[in-house]
Design a protein around this nucleic acid. Sequence first.
RNA 1: GUGCCCGUAGCUCAGCUGGAUAGAGUAUCGGCCUCCGAAGCCGAGGGUCAGAGGUUCAAAUCCUCUCGGGCACGCCA
Length: 607
Amino acid sequence: MEPARRQLTRLFSDVFTAKGFDAKLGSVSVSDRPDLAQFQCNGALAGAKSLKRNPRELATEIIGAVEALASQRFPLNDRPNDQLKDATAKPFTLSIAGPGFINIVLHDELLVQFVRGQAADKARLGCEPTASPRTVVIDYGGPNVAKGMHVGHLRSSIIGDSIVRIYRFMGDKVIGDNHVGDWGTQMGMLICQLREKQPQLPYFDPGFSGTYPSESPVTLPDLEVMYPAASKRYETDETFKAEVLRATDELQSGRRGYKALWQHFVNVTVSDLTRDYEKLGIKFDYWLGESFYEERMPALVERLKASGLTEMSEGALIIPLANEQEPEMPPLILVKSGGGFLYHTSDLATCEYRVEHFKADLALAVVDARQTMHFKQVFKAARLTGLTGKCEFVHLPFGTMNGTDGKPFKTRAGGVLKLKDLIQMVNDEAKKRLGELAVDRPYSPEELEEIASKVGVATLKYADLKHNRSADYVFDLEKFAKFEGHTGPYLLYATVRIKSILRKALSQGLSAGKIIAPTRESERRLMLEMQRLADVLTMTYNEREPHHLCEYGFNVSQAFNTFYTDCHILRETDPDRQASWLALATLAHDHLEFALGLLGISVPDRM
RNA sequence: GUGCCCGUAGCUCAGCUGGAUAGAGUAUCGGCCUCCGAAGCCGAGGGUCAGAGGUUCAAAUCCUCUCGGGCACGCCA
């Protein structure tokens, strides 16, 4: 069943259209004044203006026409006995306020019909799949070899994972790809750095023809030290830079020892990454890193050359991208003056592969906002050269995670906080809180671990997802440890509390029944909130902004908590009402578990 | 220099396809556990929506400019 707002919009639009107005005027929104109404339509104001008429007069006319259709569009099919005498009851009441707003309040019986519709649809809670499913490749994660995951990698993984879940639920064919940074100049840096420290290793002996050791000469912690050091030298030390560039070229042109060494770097990094992703409950369908496109790049470059869109400039092969609209757009460097490839080229090859191999209709890249220019270039070049076909390429940028000082996040010591340390920290805090709360419910150590982990992951993910995707946001460790207010644990707490009530009800032989019309404001508010779900989900899907779903979960939690305090379910004496409340609580639980699920957050049975 | 993002309560953020009294959380203050889980609920105070113009019956929202912060701009990714 469609949410009330959408159905009302259709009704009002029909009326506006019939009167010769733009259908858009019929748009109904949730009321800005919940004290006055549940929904509102402002179309009469704009409509009256275009005809230079009195808006209140037009609003009156609209109301008349809407009411004439109302009972037919929204039949009240179940009137409780005490309302039989009111057989002419309208499905909603309309009124005019202020300069010409039309206010709408649903009849309680109609409100209940929406909620019952959801309750009858356990699997989808009334959310229809998209009418035109597409094949969608979603590129997220994107960690780099030699740099373990730190807080900066959280966003892409968490946001991307949620978008994957949402798209899948909406019926698209989704392919999640972790585009690992495993093939750039950074690899040359690592090779040179290691060669200086351990030149005796067989990987550096060009004459070596035997089998290289299966054991990696370095661990991830080694790499994490080597990379920043090498990176610094690369910028200041010209000799080192030249060596690095040569090593990179040699690696990319297949030097055996370097390739073997590179494989070790990748392996130690990936096995560590996999553990981090497991802790976060994040999975990928593919791990097609930059190196995967290695073989495809030379052929691609040849084809592009043949297309006549490339030219030589300062020794490099480029695709010029500046035009009248974008005179400042820098060219895309296809081949470096030294002969190597940059990530522009591998990204072009990636675009091509996603179109040709995956037959993507849509390709989303969940990548840091600082790469905006890069993607503009790549996508423009891909379009120019015809690589994109009919596929739509979209960069979904996200903002930087800053510390409380407003600068990119660092630990107190000034270092980069590793993801696993962060997870550990949040889990420890969760454990502490569990100890304070669960006095009469001692958990086994295993269950304690599991719950703490769920609470910790919920804290991290929710904190990240609740913010507007494209803006920078402040990552406040102190707040993370608090778990109060608008946080993941708040939503978990509400959900777990419902589970607890339902368990208790079951043990007392009580069961959920038919949801009946609300009699209290707290009950009405909970229903109103829940019937919005499909609307919110559609918005989240269209905008690719999971924070709408966070907001929704928070609102439902809040509405439930108020309802919970106001309506004591297990103590209720009217069995019909009690059964209805149990059904309402069950539905609230299902909504929360559903919304959290799409955010990638799982709910423990108790906490 | 060119371009992009941002500036809303002490702090962290929603709201931005223009609409009524700008909302949450947090912090502060005051209530609520013999009663389904108080990580909760109820209430109070707290705002020149950075500033100035403009468009409009109506601007936090659209346009222009200024100020302030962040980021990106050819051989790192």
